[in-house]
Design a protein around this nucleic acid. Structure first.
Lengths: 357, 357
DNA sequence: ATGAAAGCGCTAACAA
DNA sequence: TTGTTAGCGCTTTCAT
């Protein structure tokens, strides 16, 4: 705020007009149309209106028409509070992401939003800010809001705590985290296979001294990547040439890469937890006068939009972010409806070879 | 979906366990604690509990303690539907952004989220996808959800339509768009001054043949930038050396820049509507073998995180995105409460000189 | 400082 | 196919 005051010119116009009128509106039109008004206008009972508007059938084509017309004419908007109070359903889905500022998640959100609105649901977004304690609180907060179900991206909470937090919810889906079917449906990326492909690719390109920026220790996906990396390295008779854990941001990635470069200066390739880390690593290399890909090859995960805009453009393992969001919502809705107990969808990332390898 | 089926391995495990149990839970604990339960436990009437929980005063310190304790013990969660139904307030704010995929907006959202949750409000996010018709629909949709107020980022709707759509809402705040005080509070960036600074900077650097990627025609901010650009160009005895309108994305920016480069190959500077456009322009220049900043200087707007990660790092006009979100929420809440009729906050962007100029 | 009664707008359950 | 009755859980209003 201090900063604000320095940088900004703040113009505040306070007009004391109509000070006494609370919650005044420019116009206060269609006062409050209730289902009773519609019923009256259509000459039926409120119940019939309710049935028609929720298309539960059981109304003649003619009355249906009359009701729809009346509702439209009166510009009727069903009151979600009344509906929720009675039916105990909010038609709202909670979506938890670790950091909306990470370009990975807006894509997931977009997908989720599309699928949700197509099904007549709303999305209540919550941003964890990479803090596993807050994660639990936010899952709890969504409960207070009576969401019908919850989707959690990249949960960082330990299993026990996570399962307990989810247990109170009507339905849950986890993105990039495993869980037993009773606890949650899952949409997971097969990072192990992805990481394996990354290593194969690097070895194919002649790299042998491969170091790893491994992301957050608590990341489920980070662990899978490591498993894949180590296995595949072993297949080629190699070992990791250095490893460092860090937050999944560009700034922290830069620090991590600098550290790695200092500790093991002879590395010829760097596998990064995500593209953001890779971008940071790129900066660190540039700062150290190391050329990419000549001296060090670089590979990321996610394929965020920035990846192909960089120069050199970043080789990475693409994850279908939008589709993950869509599928998560579909899976959740199906779990809410208990139509079936679908459990999991596994997505294998695709290697996108660009200029950093 | 076809793509999904090709690229992904989809494993769906359907377990038919407990098929008959609808909406089953792992555990179904604290059934449904209502205010009456708390009242009973504390030995008071529901009304007193309500008053204490909404800290409306009028309860002895002792009873207050007893009630708070009981509520906590029982893990009481007020039912927002009942509350909303009675009070006609949702404690929810609608936030409309044109494109969550544009890195500008996640920052605004973060700010808004922080301010909202600090005030005990929730954010209902809606993504317009750069489509002014949908904008109107979404403003209407938020009305259905009984949000207490609405914040609209970069509205693209014409004045009349926008004002009409907002009129039904209890309170509204516009980000980067002007409106009369009765219609909405405003948080606007002074793009005119910002653009002026951009031109001064370029001229100072010896550039004379300046072209413009002007963003969407319907953008309010785009128009202000143009005013500032033209005025300042005139001050220096110059004129725009080419101009093209386009969507505010990197991909479209690239096309636009390519077009500009073809039409007026002798330009020595390019002012872009936003950083995304500038990133696209950078790609176009690279593709055309034009070096930045030697042959063409490049300047953007926003200072999205990617700007400084590019190489060359992008010179740009920084906007305080986070603060905009925070201030928007504060302004909105104050308008909801009718505490005062604050109107507008103007933010002047700051020139960040990096390597593209 | 506290409580009783009423009702917000809708839909579940039961008639007809 | 349609209607009646009741009540979801809270807060507003009015009383004490």
């Amino acid at each position: 705020m201090v900063f604000l005051q320095i940088v900004l010119v703040i113009v505040i116009a306070i007009s004391a007009i109509r000070e006494t009128v609370p919650l005044s509106r420019t116009k206060e039109p269609e006062a409050k149309i209730t289902i009773a008004d519609v019923a009256r206008a259509a000459g039926v009972s409120p119940m019939t209106v309710s049935r028609v508007l929720n298309d539960q059938g059981g109304a003649s084509a003619e009355t249906t028409q009359r009701i729809l017309l009346a509702a439209n004419e009166l510009n009727y908007r069903p009151n979600p509070f009344a509906r929720g109070l009675r039916s105990d359903r909010s038609r709202t889905i909670g979506l938890l992401v670790p950091d909306i500022t990470n370009p990975f998640f807006p894509e997931v959100i977009r997908g989720a939003e599309d699928a949700a609105s197509a099904a007549g649901y709303n999305l209540l977004l919550s941003n964890v800010v990479e803090n596993s304690k807050r994660e639990g609180e936010l899952i709890e907060a969504l409960l207070r809001h009576r969401v019908d179900g919850i989707i959690v991206c990249s949960a960082r909470l330990p299993d026990a705590a996570l399962h307990k937090a989810l247990a109170h919810h009507r339905a849950a889906v986890l993105i990039n985290r495993e869980a037993p079917p009773e606890v949650a449906g899952t949409i997971v990326t097969d990072y192990e296979t992805g990481a394996s492909r990354a290593i194969d690719h690097l070895v194919e390109r002649g790299r042998r001294r491969i170091a790893i920026i491994a992301g957050p220790r608590s990341s489920f996906g980070g662990k899978s990547r490591l498993v894949g990396i180590r296995k595949t390295l072993a297949v080629h008779g190699l070992k990791a040439h250095g490893i460092v854990y860090c937050d999944p941001t560009a700034a922290i990635g830069q620090t991590a890469a600098a550290q790695l470069l200092a500790e093991t200066p002879d590395i010829d390739a760097l596998v990064c937890y995500n593209d953001l880390n890779a971008i940071g690593a790129m900066k660190a290399c540039r700062a150290a006068g190391i050329s990419i890909p000549e001296q060090i090859a670089l590979i990321g995960f996610d394929d965020i939009p920035a990846a192909e805009l960089l120069s050199p453009a970043l080789t990475t393992l693409r994850v279908q972010k939008r589709e993950m969001g869509e599928e998560a919502v579909r899976l959740l809705l199906s779990r809410i409806a208990t139509k079936n107990r679908q459990h999991g969808i596994v997505i294998v990332p695709e290697l996108i070879v660009r200029e950093t390898t």
